[in-house]
């Protein structure tokens, strides 16, 4: 993928939505590849979590306050390039970890920018960032 252009509030949420869509597909696919009940359960849980986030993002996007819509600068899209393509069993979990780490980085860094635009967006992004950081650790620790 090309680095996303993060120029304003809409493009920030748009990228977040594309990240969530990719994560849902990736973890749904992963559930059919990985072995072990515990890991399969975790992967399905993550697919659900990312699906829920999409709804929150859509609601957040509609709460925009036009009075304080300002151009965004300072976010380097290159830091958030991710690979959510199908993976075989050997690399699947590592790719899942990488995806969650990218999400954690994106949300935690953009929460600071979003704070000036919309409190609800900052809150959601902060929470998603924390959840993704936890998800990465859980995936890494899960029995293969």
């Amino acid at each position: 993928m090309d680095p996303p252009e993060l120029t304003n509030f809409g493009s920030l949420v748009r990228f977040a939505l594309s990240l969530e869509d990719a994560a849902v597909s990736f973890f749904e696919g992963l559930a059919t590849v990985v072995m072990g009940e515990e890991l399969q359960g975790l992967v399905r849980e993550l697919a659900d979590q990312h699906r829920q986030r999409r709804k929150v993002l859509e609601q957040t996007r509609a709460r925009v306050n036009e009075m304080i819509l300002e151009p965004i600068s300072g976010l380097d899209g290159g830091r958030y390039v991710f690979d959510a393509g199908p993976a075989d069993r050997t690399e699947a979990t590592a790719r899942g970890v990488s995806l969650e780490e990218t999400a954690a980085r994106f949300y935690s860094e953009s929460a600071t920018v979003a704070k000036a635009l919309l409190a609800e967006a900052a809150r959601a992004f902060r929470k998603f960032g924390e959840d993704s950081a936890r998800n990465a650790v859980r995936l890494r620790m899960a029995p293969r």
Binding site: N8, E58, R61, A62, R63, V64, N65, E66, L69
Partner: peptide, 28 residues
């Protein structure tokens, strides 16, 4: 609220403002 996004997109298409600005308008 249910048609929020459609209303916003029609404004962007017919008026020319950006989709963010259009969403801000519908919110108002």
């Amino acid at each position: 609220e249910q048609r929020f996004e459609d209303l916003s997109r029609v404004i962007a298409q017919d008026n020319g403002k950006t989709i963010d600005e259009a969403r801000g308008e519908v919110r108002r």
